[in-house]
Write a protein that binds this DNA or RNA. Structure first.
Lengths: 346, 346
DNA sequence: GAAATTAAAGCAACAGTGTTTAGTTATGGC
DNA sequence: GCCATAACTAAACACTGTTGCTTTAATTTC
């Protein structure tokens, strides 16, 4: 696969990624990308030609010709992303910068089947069509196969076994479609928006279940079969309370038991302990919290997690609640589309 | 960084990696690498020129000109690797195929200091010098920094704080030196030897401590600060037995308690449970067991782990004990050197 | 057993990457 | 107003993998 086209795509993506984090100059880009100034000029020329960047004034840094500022043309490309939950479908429109421009939410009937879902998705998408649209991303509950776009056996949805959802959606929408686990699209959202700052991070999604999205060495890690991130069923209490999964003492079971009995401190403390273990295992330096439970009590979860993290000053870990709120999963699905077109090729 | 040199290095490494797994033909290489036959011819030509490959006969596959077999010249390049433990230094010589050609073991005095260690290392290395030697790899207990080559604060070694070991060793040995955590060198050994077969794997090292080496998407994952793989201090039993780390109910504490009281089944079952959780979290399809405890009772640990793994037939996980035995860490350190020269650039 | 067919591998010309070299342009300082 | 400085770029370049065609060596066919 690695050939000249790959190389160009890669460097274009590097430069575009740096430009995404704000106004930059060619000199900045050269320093931060490791490319020579001449190479940067060529890449920038290409990107300007495609309408992805524009020159926007100059910045003076002492004697000599001032540096030309470059700005991302955020609205030059758009993407749609959808989050699919048991009872609700959320569709979000984002621009190239990863900012949410529009959203639509619709209820889904109990135990909806694939045709019903595709029809509803098509309805919402048609309400947000745009010439600049690159495609549609879908953030679904797993297990599913990201590469083939097949839902394997969605947890909690009885009518979803081995459904080739990407194909079905592409046929109905006449747009490129990508499918991924909700936790993965959520971490994509954070990674796309924060760029180079975020290389090793976990996104913890606390809802009815407990999943994580993993960003490792700057890449979303999906595992051998798109099944990575099943965090909720890690044992944290030998002989603990029974879990829906059939085992006992899973993080999810212990957490939900505390949460349902109104013990918020206990619930956040369990999540904190589990996240601290995860941070220790993976040595990530960023933790992002998301999901309905977290957004209902953001301060409590933040405190619960921070309290348990190691305090070594050479291993600082930054913890935050996702700034995208309820939109993370859907917005991340849209950014997954953007990254297919303008992210680093793999 | 990505430029033409990178591209060449990458494709050379891909081809060399495929050739490492046995005799191949140019046609095989083209199919399995995705490169065009012409590109493969050029790459193979380069590698033959460097003495890394040789043609070795032909294989007939029907009509037409027979395919030319290509073989790795395993002994064209060599590397040394060392494993450093509290009481012992082990140095191993490996060839390009990752096979162990020679080894030397020497005791280390209690609480040895860096100069003592470097002197002993130099003595053993000098006994195994060779013109084809590319460098020396060191597998050490963490925490340490792989990139700078500095031992941060080796667990159990009181005289090792912020020691620039790579520099010290390079000065003394006059050879390139790389430093990494023992768990990381161990997984490098498995990855180098099994090539493309192994993309997502964990190596579990069970000794006095319990660490894991992570191979994710075909790359060794070290974390933001070379500290990934601290698996032993994951909580598995809320309010469990106290651990040396100051917390309670760590996998390591529970395991060691069982092991010391002679409860082998209990010990292996805890490791099995913990590994199953890890497999679920990371969706790896290979688990390799290693370390003194495992090698003392290989069948028991294999059974203990296999018993706890999920049985879904679409998520098969292969479990095995490392075929390299006590040499894994040292041999992996040597292969880390090989991969610096002939592995995929990052 | 000679000619035709098939498939591997190599040669030569090529398109396109980032790099090197040598300018050109725009600013601040004197 | 001139000069030094720094940003930027045009042209030539080295080297990548690709394309199109030829050579080589085997099997198949008549």
């Amino acid at each position: 696969m690695p050939n000249l086209r790959f190389l160009r795509g890669y460097n274009d993506a590097v430069v575009l990624g740096l430009a995404r984090s704000g106004a930059v100059t060619r000199v900045d880009l050269a320093e931060r990308s490791g490319l020579t100034p001449q190479a940067v000029s060529k890449v920038v020329g290409r990107l300007i030609g495609e309408g992805l960047l524009v020159e926007s004034g100059t910045r003076n840094v002492g004697v000599g010709k001032p540096r030309t500022l470059l700005k991302l043309v955020a609205d030059s490309r758009l993407a749609l992303g959808a989050q699919v939950e048991r009872d609700e479908l959320r569709v979000v429109l984002t621009d190239l910068a990863g900012d949410v421009l529009d959203r639509a939410v619709a209820p889904l009937p109990p135990d909806f089947d694939p045709p019903t879902f595709v029809a509803e998705l098509t309805r919402l998408v048609n309400g947000m069509r745009d010439d600049k649209l690159l495609g549609v991303g879908l953030g679904f509950v797993g297990p599913l196969d990201h590469r083939t776009g097949v839902i394997h056996d969605a947890t909690g949805l009885v009518k979803w076994h081995d459904v080739p959802l990407r194909e079905l959606a592409e046929d109905s929408l006449a747009l490129p479609v990508v499918l991924d686990k909700d936790t993965n699209t959520a971490i994509v959202a954070e990674a796309w928006r924060r760029g180079e700052q975020l290389r090793d991070a976990v996104l913890v999604l606390v809802g009815t279940g407990l999943g994580v999205g993993l960003l490792l060495d700057g890449q979303v890690y999906r595992g051998a079969r798109t099944n990575a991130g099943e965090f909720g069923h890690t044992t944290i209490q030998l002989d603990g309370p029974p879990c829906v999964c059939g085992r006992t003492g899973c993080i999810e079971a212990v957490h939900n038991l505390a949460a349902r009995s109104g013990d918020l401190a206990g619930a956040t403390s369990i999540v904190g302990l589990a996240v601290a273990d995860l941070v220790q295992l993976l040595d990530v330096d960023h933790v992002v919290l998301a999901g309905r439970a977290v957004l209902a009590e953001p301060e409590a979860y933040l405190a619960g997690v921070r309290a348990k993290l190691p305090t070594d000053d050479w291993l600082p870990v930054e913890v935050e609640v996702t700034p995208l709120g309820d939109d993370v999963v859907a917005a991340g699905a849209a950014m997954l589309v953007l990254s297919e077109f303008y992210g680093r090729p793999r």
